[in-house]
């Protein structure tokens, strides 16, 4: 089967506390998968495990396997830097660098050794277009990214991420800090991007999950209660707890 990421029996601990319990999930290539669940259920921890951002946190421990294209990403031989090139991430709060719009997108390219100006320019334009931001910023690429609106900043962060050609894009509640119009734009963008990228999106907004994703996994207290086709999961939940959650009986 065409799985890009396969997670098996993943347990994650921060110091003594267990955050994830026996999580197993397979992510299909070039699709959008939503992770839903109440706050503190471990969904953010889960996606930060996929690009090893949790390595930055003191006291992080894990067992189980996480495979990207059949290769264990926690294998000691794996270079974290290379891994993160392949798996991009968009954060909950837009976090552009305090640099110009252009430099924000060019950053990843330069970091990966592309120095040729024309190549950078082309790629920046292409990425901004792909992120549906080009028309709004093409005349002010030298302006500081901090001057953009929240929604624009988040699309800039997406442009920055796709500029380095990742295979997978992780999105940690990318629209939770945005207004409804910006949210719609981000969702449209996710739709467009799924043809080229495998996208995993964390959201606590169930409508959003149904709108953007083909597959959905429901997290509760560090476990995956249920996962499968989004349509099926929302229409015909197999587990009582899933049903309670999607019908708004808790969380």
């Amino acid at each position: 089967m065409d799985y890009r990421i396969e997670v098996e029996d993943l347990n994650v601990y921060f110091n003594e506390a267990q955050i994830l319990k026996d999580v197993s999930l397979k992510i299909h290539k070039n699709t959008v998968t939503s992770l839903i669940g109440p706050s503190g259920c471990g969904k953010s921890t889960f996606i930060r495990t996929l690009n090893r951002m949790n390595d930055l946190i003191d006291g992080f421990k894990h067992d189980g396997t996480v495979l990207l294209d059949r290769k264990d990403i926690y294998d000691p031989k794996v270079d974290v830097v290379d891994l993160r090139k392949k798996i991009g991430m968009v954060f909950q709060k837009p976090n552009p660098f305090p640099k110009s719009i252009f430099d924000n997108v060019a950053y990843g390219l330069r970091v990966h050794g592309i120095n040729e100006n024309n190549a950078i320019k082309e790629k920046v334009e292409e990425s901004l277009k792909a992120a549906a931001l080009w028309d709004e910023v093409k005349d002010k690429l030298d302006m500081s990214a901090m001057g953009l609106s929240g929604g624009q900043q988040q699309r800039l962060c997406i442009a920055r991420t796709i500029a380095v050609n990742p295979e997978v894009i992780l999105m940690d509640e990318p629209a939770s800090a945005l207004d409804p119009i910006s949210t719609t734009k981000i969702e449209d963008l996710v739709h467009k991007l799924k043809n080229d990228y495998t996208i995993i999106i964390v959201t606590h907004n169930m409508q959003q999950a149904t709108r953007v994703s083909k597959y959905t996994a429901f997290f509760l207290n560090g476990e995956i209660v249920e996962s499968g086709l989004t349509e099926r999961l929302f229409v015909d939940p197999q587990d009582k707890r899933t049903e309670d959650y999607i019908t708004g009986r808790f969380g």
Binding site: N51, M53, L56, V81, D82, L83, R84, K85, K86, G88, M89, F91, K93, N95, P96, F97, P98, K99, Y107, G108, R110, V111, H112, C157, R160, T161, V164
Partner: peptide, 26 residues
């Protein structure tokens, strides 16, 4: 802000590239 560091690392920059290009200028 810690977010700058995370953003840079998530793009596949090395720790030193992150220090040199993001943390230090900020």
């Amino acid at each position: 802000p810690h977010e700058y560091k995370e953003a840079s690392l998530a793009l596949g920059a090395t720790h030193w590239q992150t220090i040199k290009n993001v943390l230090f200028p900020a």
